[in-house]
């Protein structure tokens, strides 16, 4: 996971008033415009916003805002044992076997059936990945992502500088949001994209 410090300011400088902190969880590859609007609103209200994302490349619109930091998972999900096992069994394993067979058979007429098999295997693997594996995996993906993020959360120091508001903006981020909500009982934790104003949240705490 990479912690992209856009403006790298320390969370709280000594002698200054603490700005409220928001953890915005947005795991969809392309954030919904309402999520982007919420981030903007929270920044306008004077909050420090940490956006937890799978990738930050679709957030360029807000990249130059001060007090905004992105916390990206990067390729960690691809390296998860479940994904690696699926690739091994469904994609790379059969491909290696077939390419080995191809090498053994050499070139010419003998190799043709192997090439056909290889193309068929690619089609079947792709279809299986999309129609079977992803449909099942989608149900457990929030849990997988929550565990991956969880291991690295110490990097953003939620213990020393706890968040005042945690927003799980999509279905994939709910499990992480739910876990953080239990761990930080004083934070407002919601799936609403129209949460109370920061002033209201700070007044409550």
């Amino acid at each position: 996971m990479t912690f992209v410090e856009e403006h790298g300011a320390p969370a709280v400088e000594p002698g200054t008033v603490r700005k409220p902190r928001v953890l915005l969880l947005a795991f969809n590859r392309k954030p919904h415009e309402k999520v982007v609007a919420l981030a903007e609103r929270l920044l306008d209200e004077g909050a420090r916003v940490d956006v937890v994302v799978l990738t930050d490349k679709n957030w360029t619109e807000l990249a130059d805002r001060p007090d905004l930091r992105f916390f990206a998972l990067g390729p960690a999900e691809q390296r998860h044992p479940v994904m690696r096992a699926e690739r091994l069994v469904v994609t790379s394993g059969p491909r290696r076997v077939l390419s080995g067979l191809g090498r053994l058979s050499g070139e010419g007429a003998v190799a043709r059936p192997i090439e056909g098999l290889s193309r068929g295997q690619q089609r079947v693997s792709k279809a299986f990945h999309k129609r079977v594996f992803m449909k099942v995996y989608q149900n457990f993906r929030p849990l997988v992502l929550a565990r991956l993020f969880d291991r690295r959360l110490p990097e953003i120091d939620l213990q020393g500088d706890p968040a005042d508001l945690i927003v799980a903006s999509d279905a994939l981020s709910i499990t992480l949001g739910w876990r953080l909500a239990r761990r930080f009982p004083h934070a407002v934790a919601t799936t609403s994209l129209v949460p109370p104003s920061m002033a209201e949240i700070v007044a409550r705490s």
Partner: peptide, 17 residues
């Protein structure tokens, strides 16, 4: 329900399911 703390264990761990 929008309050994450009000989610039960099943919904918290498997929101899509």
């Amino acid at each position: 329900e929008r309050d994450l703390r009000a989610y039960g264990r099943f919904r918290g761990l498997s929101p899509i399911l």
